[in-house]
Design a protein around this nucleic acid. Structure first.
Lengths: 210, 210, 210, 210
DNA sequence: AATGAATGAGGGTTCATTCAT
DNA sequence: CATGAATGAACCCTCATTCAT
């Protein structure tokens, strides 16, 4: 188990309000994120979303011009929030390994904390977007990818991994993104422990598992 | 780069005929796998598949009772083939690290070799199946998961990784499955090199990257 | 010919609005009943029904979840209405023979009056319903069958017929239901006269034909 | 109960081979009649019929040019057979009441004896035929209707019924045809007893029920 | 903003029928 | 005669979207 000084940033408090539940728009996005996450974008109908809000399906279109716009808005919110949190967490970390752990912790926190629905959607439903909008999103994620790559390059320079930063980033991203299919917090494996396992995967001699 | 003696099993020749192109059924599955891989199951219409075969959409239903049956058949074929190849490759490997490499190599071969379409579908479209059929598939994959877990337990016992076998299996599965979104053979990174990177991720002191 | 004092209840005015023509739903049911009666349930397409309403076929499904639901709704309305009218007519009849005549008159009125389309459908298209729904309908008709049987038992006790009530009920029901294939009001045989013929069939020494 | 001297013609032996089971065509018609009777013409597919014969659906069309032709052939066979039997039975009857009983007995025998499937189809599926073919069939039934009408006119002249022959014929036809929906031989009510009940319906002072 | 009836294109599927083998 | 793959039209139904109220 990680010692307290190496503990990942607290997972509970972050992204407490990815969506503003005080506004109809925020509530709509929250419901949509949940449904897209559960049943997929294609498997979710606008009627499902409307029913979740207690309104008629036609009324959705006063808030968004299309179902796809809803998906895009969900993704955009995650992109912005994750960018912000990631930068903060990395800045606060004391050393290279801490920065890698921070990246992993933030990503897992998004995948399994209060923003899990929306983050799942961002990670697993991007193929539902037309190419044009995908690239808009990719632009938004550029800073995020840069940050990962910078930190991983630093780690490699420090001899913590033999793998090229870009490849390692992709492999880790897959490993983390996939956790949304098998990991659920609340079981025997705590989120913090999962962070350590992923860190052990990323870096040699880090993250002792058990 | 891996030395020739440690080279992964040749990736080019395996699974040359996942589908029997001599039969209408085999051709249908091949086209369907490609389309499901490109546009997703929901995004592919039976008319798309029929057009790919040069027949009318109604004619599909002489070969399969439903679109879902086609998806299931595609997945089943991959499951069977991958089970077979995996067992063979592991049996032929000389030592623990070799067995882990064999697992990775076979999985990546399926993801990026001649069966890449079908394998992508298996890995990424399982949510399109009703729960009942998902579990049928999971039964078919039990041997596959067992094999992974056995080998990874062996690796951990040998001190090659600190991560619990089940967790490591899931993390690696995600890392590998995700490659279908970013990796394409034929570029600077050869399939064999990718195997070594994944191996370096899995095991300490293995798979020197560069 | 029946004397005026024995005349069956007036056939023209009853059930003026089996379907509420003020609502889209009521208009839909009316058209559907007519088409099902003319071409059978299987021979009627949802496009036929929609065309009869001047809307698109997809719009039907805002009112009913399936074509079968439309059929069921048509039948249900007849069952309820006929139950009500039958009970009223029997209650108003002065004696046993009058009660039998009331039963026949109401049944024929439904078969050839304003509700003729829907009643034909109820009598002749029940095989188009799945068994489960058939029995729901049968439950709804229990009161109706009971009434017939009670009155016919009374008639037999009075020596008006030698036939067991249940058998007589079935035979009469067939005789009356079948009239929808050969009888049309407006010809030489008035509805009232037809009632007397059916009564003569049911009871000895009643309903002098000519 | 009828005395033995008034017993209806034996029901067991007639129409033993409405269809010639020695020929493929005969077997096909037998299967088709059964399926049309059970599930209706519209509810029966040519594949159902073919499956019943153990052949492929395409092969049906070597015997009949269309599904409708099969229906028509089934009906034609019944019409011919029933015409023949009816004429014979009426000729053999000693008196007016005996002739009415013969008509009823033959009709019920067709509806519930070995030819029950085909007869049900003739009586209940005529709406599945296009008008043109319906009238061909009606021509074939003219002799049959004439016979009924002649006998019923005789009965009326003898004071056995007050109802006009044509109307009585239609009412009785309905009563008898409808038995295929509720009566099954083998129960408490024997076919012979059912004949007597129908006779009691048709004629005053005949057919004592119990 | 919300309604709810309507749209209209498209979806998966069925099925009688054809025809080369 | 039988096959079985294919046809092609039609079927019931879904669903994102529109719009008058």
């Amino acid at each position: 188990m990680p010692e307290s000084t190496r503990t990942a940033p607290d997972l509970a408090g972050a992204a407490p309000g990815l969506f503003d539940m005080a506004t109809p728009r925020g509530r709509l996005l929250r419901i949509a994120a949940r449904l897209f996450g559960e049943k997929g974008f294609a498997g979710t109908t606008v009627r499902d979303i409307a029913a979740g809000l207690g309104i008629q399906s036609g009324s959705l279109f006063h808030h968004f011009r299309s179902k796809e716009d809803i998906l895009f808005a969900v993704m955009e919110m995650v992109v912005e929030a994750i960018n912000r949190d990631l930068a903060e967490a990395v800045a606060a970390a004391p050393d290279t390994a801490g920065r890698v752990r921070a990246l992993i912790a933030v990503e897992l926190h998004y995948l399994h904390g209060p923003a899990s629905d929306a983050t799942s959607v961002l990670f697993h439903e991007w193929r539902a977007l037309p190419k044009a909008r995908r690239s808009v999103l990719m632009n938004g994620r550029a800073a995020y990818f840069d940050l990962w790559q910078t930190v991983l390059a630093e780690a490699r320079a420090a001899g913590l991994t033999p793998i090229e930063p870009e490849i390692l980033r992709q492999l880790l991203h897959g490993a983390l993104a996939w956790t949304s299919f098998w990991y659920r917090p609340g079981g025997a494996l705590t989120p913090e422990a999962l962070v350590e396992r992923a860190l052990a995967l990323a870096l040699k001699d880090e993250g002792r598992a058990s």
